[in-house]
Design a protein around this nucleic acid. Sequence first.
DNA 1: GGGCAAATACTG
DNA 2: CAGTAT
DNA 3: GCCC
Length: 608
Amino acid sequence: MGKRRSSPDTLIDAHVRFSPGQPKTKHAKKDLSNAKNAVSLLRLDSGSTPPLASEQTDYQHAEALKTTSPKRTSHESLTNTRNKLFGGLCASLISENISRVRAKIIRRLWTSNGGTLDDTAQTAKLILSEVSPSRLRQILDVQQLPEGVQVIYPDWVSRCIASNALLDPTICQVSDPVEVDCAVASDGTLTDIEIGDHGSETASDSTEVLELERVSGPLGSDTTHLVTSAPAFTENMDTSRKAETTSEVSADSLLSRIIHEEQDRTRLSVDGANADRFESDFDVESDEFDGIDDEVIEIDDDATATKPEDSLTKGVDQPKIRSQGRFLCMQENGRKDIDMNNKNAQITDVLEVLLRRSEAEGEHFRVLSYRRAIQTLKRHGKTIESGSEARKIFGIGGKMADIIDEVIETGRSRKAETVPESQAVLALFQGVHGCGIKVARSWYAQGCRTLDDVRAKARPTHNQLLGLQFYDDLQQKMPRNEAGAIGECVIQTCRSIDSKSQCTIMGSYRRGRPMCGDVDVIVTHPDGRSHQTILPALIARLKESSSLLLIADLHLHSSSSGYDSATSYMGICRLPEGAGIHRRLDIWTVPWDEMGAAFLHWTGNDIL
DNA sequence: GGGCAAATACTG
DNA sequence: CAGTAT
DNA sequence: GCCC
C-alpha cells in the first residue's frame, strides 16, 4: 500500500552531510589500504598469533602490549585465546565519560575477542579511555603513567574488529587537546568542525569528509562526542593532525562506512544477492536497551560486535527477549525466506487479519504492534505452543497471547472472523491513492460501499480520481525486471538531458526484492546544482518518450519553501509493451552531497 | 495512562 | 488547516 | 496493541 515509507528529508535533516570530492572512490579505497599497510600492527608472540590480515608484518608493538595475563602458562588456555583477535591482551577501561551501555559493549567486544580486562589498571598495558591524559593521571592518582602503557580511545577496539586486525594503537592514541580545530561551547555542545580539505566540493583531491554535527543536549553522561572525520579518512591524515582530534564519535565509523560504500555503488548491481551482501556489512543489533539515549551512538560498537550466536545466548535473565533486530534485506531470500520458514503461520495469518482491520480503522499504533508481533513470530525459529510461551516474547502481550491460545486450541480466532461490515469497505477505499481513513469514512458515511458507488456518489479529488481509475493496476506489484525497465527508461532519459546526471533506482528494487510496488528513482548531479532544475525537463522529455508512457501526474512540484533540496515527481506510467499495467513512478532529486544520506534513506528496511 | 517513527511536501 | 502522501 |  506504500504508506509506510519516509520522505528523503529525514536523514538529510539529521545533519549528515557527505561531501565527496568527485566520484573517486577508487582513490579513497587505495588510500585506505595504503594507510592500513602503513600502520604498524601488533601481535603478541609467535605462540599466540591471532589470525591477522596478510599485510600485518610489523611486530614492533608486540612487546609493549604483551601482558602477564593469568594462566598464560597453561597450554590449553593459550589455545583458547590464540585465535582470538585480542588474545593475550589485557586492557583497562576507564569508564569516565563513557556511558554505561557503551562501556558494557566495549567490555563485551574486548573479552569476547579474547582480551582480558583489568580495571585497576595495575597490570594493563592498554588503557581505553575517553578522558585526557591529565585527567587520566588524576583518576589513577599517579604522576606519570608507567612506561609502555598506551592510552587509546575505546574506538580502537571496534576498529580492530571491523578490520579483523590489530591496528596500531597509536592511531587512536589519546593526547591532550592542544590545538583542536573545533569549538566546544561551555555547555559541552559543539559547533561545526571541519577536518580535511573540503573548501571546495569539487576540488579533485579533496578528502571525502563526513560531518556529523551533534545538535545539542547531553547524550547520556558523556560530553566528549566531538565531531571527527571518519576513520578511513583519519588514516589519511598525518599523525600530528590525528593527535589533535580529541575524540571520536563511535557512530562515525559506521556512518562513514555506509556512506562510503554507498558512494561506491552509485549503481548497485541488479543482483539481489549482491544487495544482501552489502547490507549485511552493517549489521545492527539492538538487543540491549539499558538506556535509549546511548543507543544512538552505539551503533558502531554494536554493529561490529555481536555474532548471532552470542546474541541468542545472552539476555537469559531478561523477562522479555527482544527479537534480534536485523534488517529484512539481510535475510538470504528476504521475505520469502521468512515466510517459508515461518513456523507460526497459523498464528501470524490470524494476526495479519487483525492487522488489516486495524489498518482499515486507522489504528496506527495497533497496526504497529501487530506488525511487530507478526514479524517476530515469523522469525521465531520455534513453533509457539501456547499463549504464555508467546507472551514471553517482546512485543507480544496479553491480548495477543489470548488470541494465540484460542488459535492453538480451536484453530481459529473469533475476533479475526467477526469482521465489522465496514472494515472491508474502508480498506477497499483506502486502497485509492489519496484516500486515507478520513475520506474512506466519509465516503462510507455517504452511503458508498463500492468503488462504483464512489464514482457515482462521491466527489473524488483529482488524485483520488486517478486512484479510482487505476485502482486494480496499482494494487498489483510488478516483477522487479519491470521496475528495472521503467527505472532504466527514466535513467536514459535523464542522461539524454545531461549526461553527467546520475540516477539510481531505489526502494524495494534496490533491496533486491522480486516484486516491487512502485519505482523510485533518485536523480542527482555532481555539480551540486543541476538536480534542482532537471526535473521539469526530465518529465517533459519522458512525456515525449515512447519507451515509457507517462500516463498521469499525481504531483509535480518544486519546493519553494525554505527547504530547497528536495523536489519530486509522483506519477503513473506504463511500459508500452507487455501487459501494459499502470505503475506508480516516483522521481526525487537530491543534492549531490546528500546522496549518502539519500541512499540510506531510500534503501530502507520496509517489512510486510 | 503516556508513548510508541519522524519529518516534510503537496492537495483542496 | 486537515488529510494524505512519501 | 504493547511496554513501562
